[in-house]
């Protein structure tokens, strides 16, 4: 069973320390929600796990089944089974969704030796159609340029479609729920459930500001991230508590002893 292990992770951006020692272990098939106010370090955590060059790792480690991820570039992390659903997915003018997905699928199938192992087109088509149906993605998506002129909701749907196409071992969802109306939210939530429960046993790190999505996706663990540290961990009831009491409550509780 696969394990993603984050140990004492400390990260800075522009010489400012954002994460001051994160410890977190996610196992295959588990859903971990990470909740926190704006500026708590949520996006830093997700982008660092994936290897964004803007962030400097000051210390600690991120291990996938014991293998160090921090020393390899982003594309290799992806090919090892990591996936990040972006909060702000980038637009790629002139590249259709269909050809992007096909290029990505084939890039992930290249063997260690460098030998190509392209997925034959009929199989690719069948896989794509199946996932599109599951996520209620319209056919017109395929010929449009990736995220170019997409609404916020469409972008998030495309992130989910990619996640389902790639079947990652671990997926980090960076505020995938923000900017979605309730119907889209349900589709995304069902997509998450389907992926981690049934097919791929994907371990999920669901990073969110709001408790709303947790009505549809039931996390195994909820972690509260404040000022670059996980200050509380609990079950799904913790999300409800945060919703009623707010993040200030946690912060006050956290710093009470220091005053």
């Amino acid at each position: 069973m696969s394990t993603l292990e984050i140990r004492d992770l400390r990260v800075s951006i522009d010489a400012k320390e954002i994460l001051n020692g994160i410890d977190l272990t996610v196992k295959a098939g588990e859903v971990h929600a990470i909740m926190g106010p704006n500026g708590s370090g949520k996006s830093t955590l997700s982008l660092t796990i994936m290897g964004h060059p803007r962030y400097t790792v000051l210390g600690g480690s991120v291990l996938l089944d014991g293998e160090d991820l921090l020393s390899i570039p982003v594309d290799q992390r992806a090919r090892r089974g990591m996936f990040l659903a972006f909060q702000y997915p980038a637009a790629i003018p002139g590249v259709s969704v269909a050809s992007f997905l096909r290029t990505a699928i084939n890039a992930r199938r290249v063997k260690e030796s460098g030998e190509k192992n392209d997925l034959p087109i009929p199989q690719f088509r069948a896989l794509l159609k199946e996932k599109m149906k599951l996520l209620e993605v319209d056919d017109s998506f395929l010929t449009r340029s990736v995220n170019d002129g997409f609404s916020g909701g469409e972008k998030k749907r495309l992130e989910m479609l990619q996640m389902h196409m790639f079947q990652p071992t671990f997926a980090v969802l960076d505020e995938t729920d923000s900017g979605l109306d309730i119907d889209a939210l349900k589709v995304v939530a069902e997509g998450i459930e389907a992926l981690h429960k049934e097919s791929a046993k994907t371990g999920i790190l669901l990073i969110t500001h709001y408790e709303r999505i947790l009505k549809y996706v039931r996390p195994d663990y909820v972690h509260v991230l404040v000022d670059g540290r996980i200050v509380r961990t609990g079950g799904s009831e913790l999300a409800a508590e945060l919703e009623s009491k707010g993040y200030e409550f946690v912060r006050e509780e956290l710093y009470a002893g220091q005053r």
């Binding site: 594309d75 990040l84 002139g94 590249v95």
Partner: peptide, 25 residues
């Protein structure tokens, strides 16, 4: 943009090729 594309498993060279292909479209 390059980071986004590479995060899908494309190495830098393939990501660049894809971006130029899109640019020429």
């Amino acid at each position: 943009l390059l980071f986004y594309i590479r995060s899908r498993g494309l190495d830098r060279r393939t990501a660049e090729q894809l971006l130029v292909r899109g640019f020429f479209q």
